[in-house]
Nucleic acid binder design. Sequence first.
DNA 1: GTGTCTGCAAAGAATTTGCAAAGAC
DNA 2: GTCTTTGCAAATTCTTTGCAGACAC
Lengths: 135, 135
Amino acid sequence: MNIAEKIRSKGIKATPQRQLVYEVLEGLGHAPIDEITRKVRAANPCITVATVYRILDSFQEAGLISYLNHPNGKSYYDITPDVHHHIYMDNNEILDYTDEELTELIKKRLQTGKFKDLAIEQVSVQIFAKNKPQK
Amino acid sequence: MNIAEKIRSKGIKATPQRQLVYEVLEGLGHAPIDEITRKVRAANPCITVATVYRILDSFQEAGLISYLNHPNGKSYYDITPDVHHHIYMDNNEILDYTDEELTELIKKRLQTGKFKDLAIEQVSVQIFAKNKPQK
DNA sequence: GTGTCTGCAAAGAATTTGCAAAGAC
DNA sequence: GTCTTTGCAAATTCTTTGCAGACAC
C-alpha cells in the first residue's frame, strides 16, 4: 500500500501536501511539529505552518498517526497509530517499546487494592534512559 | 516545618509571593499553571503571571515540587517532588499512584531482551481511567 | 460538480524577557 | 549592603482562525 492509499484508507483525501507530511513523518518515526514543518517546507516551501498543523491534526483524528505526550512539553507525533510505550533517551531519541504483557500486568495490578473501582482505559509507560557507557 | 521553612530548606528565598504560590499548590495537589495563577491572584492581585511562572520554575529547579507531563498538553505542577505514577481520570482529576514494586518490576523487565543495554533512569506510568458506573 | 483542503495574513494563547525598584537574608 | 526577586509592559513563540480560491474524488 503506497502513501496515498494509506491516507485514503482512513477515509480522508490524499492531497499532495498530506502525502508529503506523511512521508516526512515516516522518515522520522517520531518528531516534534517544528521539525516536521521544517522538513516539509524544505521539500516544498509553499506549504504553510498552518497547513502542517491541520494535516497532523486530521491524521490523528483519522487514526493514521498518534499524538505523543512528550515529557519535554513539546508537541510530538508518532507515525505508529496504536498506543505503545516509549523510551526517552538522553540524547532526545525516542524508542518504541511494545509490551502488551506489561500493559496487561499493570492493568491487573490496579484491579486489586485501592484502585479496583476504576475502569482502566489506557496504560502508557514512559521510560527515561541513556546508553550504558561502553567498556 | 512551615511553608517558609520548607522553601528555605531548598536553598531559595521565602518571599511572600513564593509562600502564597506554595500554599495554593499545596491546597490543590496537582494543578495547571492557569489555575494556580487564578487562585494566587485571587488572594493577591498584585502578583503577576510572569512571577507565578518564575516561581514555579524556581521551585521545580530547587526540587521542591515537580513538573507534571500532563497528556492534555497543558503545564501542570505537582506538590510532590519525587517521581511517581499518575492516574488521569476522565473528569480531569489526577490521582497519585505510588508503587515502587511496579517501578522495580518494569526496570527488571527491561534489563532482559532488546533493551538490556540501556541504563534506566526513571520510569513513569500514566494510567487513563474513569470511575466504573455505579450499580 | 461538490464539499473538503490549502494559502495567506491576522488573531489568539501561552510563555519569556529586560529593566528598574523592592525586598530577603 | 548585596544579590535575588518582583512588577510591568513588551516581545516571543506556538497554535488557531476566517476566508476565498484550488483541488480531490
